[in-house]
Design a protein around this nucleic acid. Structure first.
Lengths: 149, 149
DNA sequence: CTGACATACGTACCATGATACGGAGTCAAG
DNA sequence: CTTGACTCCGTATCATGGTACGTATGTCAG
C-alpha cells in the first residue's frame, strides 16, 4: 500500500487533494512524474510522511516557508542537528513575543471591562472612551514613512 | 483646523492616504461628499477621530470587521454599555484561547529543544523526529470533510 | 460497455489589511 | 502662468494558506 493516487495520499495524510497540489505548487512536496502512457500520477508513501511533517510543523507555529526550509535542511546530508535547533529556538522567541503582546492586550481588555459600568448610556462607557483617541498612548506606526523608490 | 484634505487627515491620524481610502471602501469611514464645483473632498475632524478609534481597536486585537460593528453600535442611540462590554468580554475569551494555544506551542518547542542533542547527525535530532509522523498526536482537522454543496 | 467517480490542470476566488500604480484633474506658490 | 505637490479613482499587487471551478481525460465496478 505504499503507492497510491493523490486522493488516497490525501486521505492518508488527513488533508484535501487540493492541499497536496497546493504544496506541490509551492515546492513543499515533489510532484511524482506522470506515467509515460496514460494514467494517474503515483504517489509514494513519502508524500504522506511529508504532508504530516508539514502539518506537525504548522502545529508548532512554523509557516509554510519555514517548513520548506526545514525540509530542505532535512534533505541536505551536511545538515547538523544544531541547524534545526537554532530554528526551533528562534521560533520559541517569536512565540514568546507573541505571548507578551497578547498578554498586554489581555490586561488592557480586562482593565477596560472592570472599569466599564456594564449598563447605561454609551457616553459613560469606559471601553468606548478608551477607543476614542486616548491621547497619550502613541500608536505604533504600521504605515510606511519612507518611500522605497 | 477642523476641516482638511485627505492627506492632512491621514497625517493627523498617523496613517497613509491609501489607508483612509481603504477604510472608506470598507465602510469604516464615511466618505465626505465631493464639493459641487471642482475641488477636493473635505474631511472633518471626525474622520481623524474615527481612524484613531480604528487603530486603538486594532491594538486591542479587534479585526476591522469587529471594529466596524463597534462603530455602528456607537452610532446607534439605543446601544447600551452592556453591548460593548459583551464584545470586549468575547474578545477577552478569544485572546485567552490564543494564549492557551501559544502556551501549548511554547511548551512543545521548549521540550523539543531540551531533548535535542544540539549537535550531530540529523537522524539523532529529536526535533526532526517530532516533525516526522509522531504517531499518537492526532492532527487537528484543518481540512473540510463535509461539502457545503 | 457504460455510468459514476477520480484525476489532471489551469485558473479564479476567499479572507485579511493594507500598499502601489497610472493618468487625469486641481490647487497654490512663485 | 507654470510647476510641483496633492487629490481622485479604478485597478492591481502583496503575503498567507488554502478552497473552488471547469473541462478534459482516466479508471473501474457492474
Amino acid at each position: 500500500m505504499s503507492e497510491m493516487t493523490i486522493g488516497k495520499a490525501a486521505r492518508a495524510a488527513g488533508v484535501g487533494v487540493e492541499t497536496i497540489r497546493f504544496y506541490e505548487r509551492n515546492g513543499l512536496i515533489e510532484q511524482p512524474p506522470k506515467p509515460a502512457f496514460g494514467g494517474f500520477r503515483v504517489y509514494p508513501a513519502e508524500t504522506v510522511r511529508r504532508v504530516r511533517f508539514i502539518r506537525q510543523g504548522q502545529e508548532l507555529g512554523f509557516s509554510l516557508r519555514q517548513i520548506a526550509e526545514l525540509l530542505s535542511l532535512k534533505a541536505d546530508p551536511a545538515t547538523d542537528c544544531s541547524d534545526v535547533r537554532r530554528r526551533a529556538q528562534a521560533k520559541l522567541e517569536e512565540v514568546d513575543e507573541k505571548l507578551a503582546r497578547l498578554t498586554g492586550i489581555r490586561a488592557a481588555l480586562e482593565e477596560l471591562i472592570a472599569a466599564c459600568p456594564g449598563r447605561g448610556a454609551l457616553r459613560a462607557c469606559s471601553i468606548m472612551g478608551a477607543l476614542e483617541g486616548a491621547e497619550g498612548a502613541p500608536m505604533s506606526p504600521r504605515h510606511k514613512v519612507e518611500k522605497t523608490r
